[in-house]
Design a protein around this nucleic acid. Structure first.
Lengths: 347, 347
DNA sequence: GCCATTTCGTATAACGTTCTCTGTAGATCG
DNA sequence: CGATCTACAGAGAACGTTATACGAAATGGC
């Protein structure tokens, strides 16, 4: 009988660490060490192994790696994929991972929190080295549970102080206030806000934060609470349209509307155009995210820039730091600023 | 000495197949059989095991599964993430996978074919059971190489007849012709097309197909080749704007512009508005994809609907069939139709 | 009742890595 | 020059599954 491992190359076509070891005339352990840049390998051995790796075009199996060590894979949960702001985040995550061995893989949940749970489980079961959640509906308790198993960073949610996981966001409260300050400085007298309907909110609390900032700034400017209008609408063109109509039909209609996110503001524009109103002459509109469609002439939408790319980059950085060993929570906060365009008249 | 495997539960917190086996008082193999719905398990045993699985909240490690069997993961390569048409495809892929054990994970490449290669490698190394490629830049030869290792289906590319991998698309050539037929029926006299610049094309040949259909239909309608205008533009608002200007400054300016995809057509609208032209009175615009922004009043864009969701669903179906054993190539082709809106005047 | 089937459950060898330990050759030192 | 140390290489046991091969028990045919 042969001893267990025989001298044959791998049966299937795939070249494995064993193939490389045989080709280079070294042990499997030696190849593993070279792959991992581990301690205890001479320059000569390294050169030999690297030559064989190149010659055989060897790539380690992430599945096998995952059983003992890392998979070098970052799982990203995207709550939905329609928000035109998300591509910026993804670009940023890629930025943050470039030059490392880590590859981001994305799972998309379509609004339901059971789907999101299933995806997070799928990511954990596939031995991701860390997980980034974007706009997740999962509760903090659920996220904590995941964070006990592996590094987690969230985007689009401000975790409570006691949370043990990381986060990357912009200062949404400041952003909400910024909208008011800017609109008033432009001469608008009665700003209103259209926000995300509670039922669609989940744990992603950015719209709420923006509401808080909006309210605080309105109060600071002397508005009575009864004069502060915040109208919730479902994530849907028809409902946004109806909500805009209702606002305009009210006794003291707004002269400017703040859409909590660009894709809401674009729908607000749509509703106003359908009503034959001129922007910005009859009414001003401002969004949040400064996503690419804002620049189109037919939108020409003033928006709050929250540096999405930087947020993504920092989420990746935080996660890598965790993987490297950090154990205390850390948070990144970008500073929002106004990106002015034609949908708000200038003085 | 103890025998190799001892009776202890898993050291780390994670509950493994062994934990379940011990809890249920059966062998590891029995649990595996239940998980896989394999042959040779009695109702009683199944019940016992399923109870333990539920009690312990067991989920198998996909990494470990991947080492011998399947990972129940479908890898999807998205060439880019900014095209507003892609979410429809993703919804469709999800549809096609719902009710199965398969989970789709997405990798996004940003235009460069080296990035795409890296992502495809990453997916293969992670033992995906199959791969869907959307708008990939990889050559057919490269895709073939991957398809020799595992099932592959492509979207947004019509493979040559000898290809061994599957595909799901709409009939882009028909769609291009449909645009011409529709525009002429609306009374337009000089349609022009703005298409994707060759350098940005890669292997994704849908824009070329639409050009072919456009040209064929123009010829069929009696246009001389010199009167058939197809202008390439880079994937970029400024370049599209410049291209539109050039078209309009030509001796016989078009009275309707066909953007090869919606996100080009939206930029065409932007350029026309910037020039002060009225749509559809001065010039008509038509897109392709019928993506959500078409419905906004400020766009109100007529577009060719290619049933993206159905395409995604069928790509998933084809892949599952492959995994189940089919070995010959199969292809799905959706029929394009006009979705009429205000950007093209009606008679 | 006895042999031939079928059905069911288990033992165990993979799968391709990582990583701890052990062994060995030189180098350094008293 | 023997003893100690360091730097490097390799052996081999995990990791959590799957799937093959093999008994044992139940069933069925006559």
């Amino acid at each position: 009988m042969n001893q267990g491992s025989d001298i044959q190359t791998a049966r299937s076509g795939r070249v494995t660490i064993r193939t490389v070891a045989e080709h280079a005339g070294v042990s499997v352990a030696a190849v593993s060490k070279v792959m991992r840049n581990a301690y205890g390998v001479s320059a000569a051995l390294r050169a030999k192994v690297e030559a064989s790796i190149a010659a055989l075009n060897y790539r380690p199996s992430a599945a096998a790696r995952g059983m003992r060590g890392q998979t070098y894979t970052i799982g990203v949960l995207m709550a939905d994929i329609k928000n035109p702001f998300f591509p910026q985040l993804i670009d940023g995550i890629d930025d943050g991972l470039v030059g490392t061995q880590y590859v981001p893989l994305y799972g998309v949940g379509h609004g339901s929190s059971t789907t999101e749970t299933a995806i997070v489980h799928a990511l954990v079961d596939r031995q991701m080295d860390g997980i980034i959640m974007i706009g997740q509906r999962l509760t903090d308790a659920e996220v904590e549970a995941v964070a006990r198993e592996l590094p987690v960073a969230v985007i689009g949610h401000h975790p409570p102080p006691e949370a043990t996981f990381d986060s990357a966001n912009n200062d949404d409260e400041r952003g909400g206030a910024l909208v008011v300050e800017y609109l008033l400085s432009q001469g608008y007298k009665r700003p209103a806000m259209i926000t995300l309907r509670r039922a669609d909110l989940g744990q992603a609390d950015v719209s709420q934060r923006r509401e808080l900032g909006f309210v605080a700034a309105m109060r600071a400017a002397g508005f009575a609470d009864s004069a502060i209008r915040i109208a919730p609408a479902a994530d849907d063109l028809d409902d946004v349209t109806a909500t805009v109509r209702a606002l305009l039909d009210s006794p003291e209609p707004p002269d400017a509307i703040f859409g909590w996110a660009d894709y809401y503001a674009l729908e607000v524009l749509s509703a106003l155009r359908a009503l034959g109103l001129r922007v910005p002459e009859d009414i001003g509109v401002i969004g949040y995210d400064n996503s690419p469609p804002c620049a189109y002439t037919q939108n020409d939408l003033t928006s709050i820039d929250q540096s999405g790319r930087e947020i993504g980059r920092n989420a990746a950085r935080l996660l890598l730091e965790r993987i490297a060993g950090r154990t205390t929570a850390d948070h990144f906060l970008a500073v929002p600023k106004v990106s002015e365009r034609g949908s708000t008249r200038s003085k």
